[in-house]
Amino acid sequence: MARDKQKPEARPIETSPGEMATRYEHPAYGVVQVSRSSGNSRLFGSSLKHQHTIRLSIHRACLDRHLSSDFIHARDNRGLVEIEMSQTQWAQVVSSVGLGSGTPVTLRQVPDEEASVKVTPDIEEPDETADRQHARELREKTEQALAEAKERIAELEALANTSGSIPKKPFREAVRKAKFAVGNAPENVAFVHDRFTETMEDAKEAAKTEIEGHIHALTLQTGLEHLREEGARLLEDHRQGGEDDPDE
């Protein structure tokens, strides 16, 4: 059964005085946080008391688009679920993907048992790809830099056209602002370009990791199937060998 799709909701937020960002929220957005804990814990599936443990928690998340970068973080401190494990259990969780019936863990924070389970909608494809988003941001940053430079030049022209002597203090201030606007323009545009390059490199590495994981899973599955076939053949050979042996 196909799930419904929903676009992330976007709204402007102020990250600092004069600095704005776009915050995206979606019911399917989440983050996993893993931390170390110290104490004297009794854990499910272990006969020992553990001084050092691993805690894993899942939170609802949001994405802030700011400075041509994505900043993902938990929406609040109220986690949806939190579990605690020994370091051995944590190693089993990481190394036994798809194997066995599960690793025992100790539940520390869970929803109420009477709460209904809600299926979240799928995340709808964004209106623009990452490269188009960066291209738009690069164009906007360039236009902003040019507009600011033109504004400073207009201030200098206004002072130059003043009748009589030009006031030194306003003139120096206008020159300072013009130098600042022109001097920062290349750095601001280069910053967006660098973020684009980093994003594309991250995407390439993520795709490489996904491909390697898929190959590893296929290799593991192929190996298990080969072991099953080889085991059945060895058992059959053993049976045939036993039938051929003369009775003592």
Score class of each variant (00 low, 15 high):
Lys7His: 08
Ala10Val: 10
Pro12Asn: 07
Glu14Val: 13
Thr15Met: 14
Gly18Asn: 01
Glu19Phe: 12
Tyr24Gln: 03
Pro27Tyr: 01
Pro27Trp: 03
Gly30Leu: 04
Ser38Ile: 00
Gly39Val: 00
Ser41Leu: 04
Arg42Phe: 01
Phe44Arg: 10
Gly45Val: 01
Ser46Gly: 02
Ser47Asp: 12
Leu48Lys: 15
His52Asp: 11
Thr53Leu: 01
Arg65Asn: 09
Phe71Ala: 07
His73Trp: 08
Gly79Phe: 08
Leu80Pro: 04
Ile83Thr: 04
Thr88Met: 11
Gln89Val: 03
Trp90Ala: 11
Gln92Lys: 12
Ser96Val: 04
Gly100Ala: 05
Pro104Gly: 06
Pro104Glu: 11
Pro104Asn: 09
Val105Asn: 13
Thr106Trp: 05
Leu107Ser: 11
Pro111Phe: 06
Glu113Leu: 11
Ser116Asn: 05
Val117Arg: 08
Thr120Pro: 07
Pro121Cys: 02
Asp122Phe: 03
Ile123Phe: 00
Ala135Asp: 12
Ala135Glu: 15
Glu137Tyr: 05
Leu138Tyr: 13
Thr142Asp: 10
Glu143Pro: 06
Glu148Ser: 10
Glu157His: 09
Thr162Met: 14
Pro170Ala: 05
Ala174Tyr: 09
Val175Glu: 07
Ala178Ser: 14
Asn184Ile: 06
Pro186Val: 01
Glu187Asn: 09
Glu187Gln: 08
Glu201Arg: 15
Ala203Lys: 13
Lys204Glu: 15
Thr209Ser: 06
Glu210Asn: 05
Ile211Val: 11
Glu212Lys: 13
His214Pro: 03
Ala217Ser: 08
Thr219Phe: 08
Glu225His: 14
Glu225Leu: 15
Ala232Gln: 09
Arg233Val: 06
Glu236Tyr: 10
Arg239Cys: 06
Gln240Arg: 15
Gln240Val: 01
Gln240Asn: 14
Asp244Cys: 00
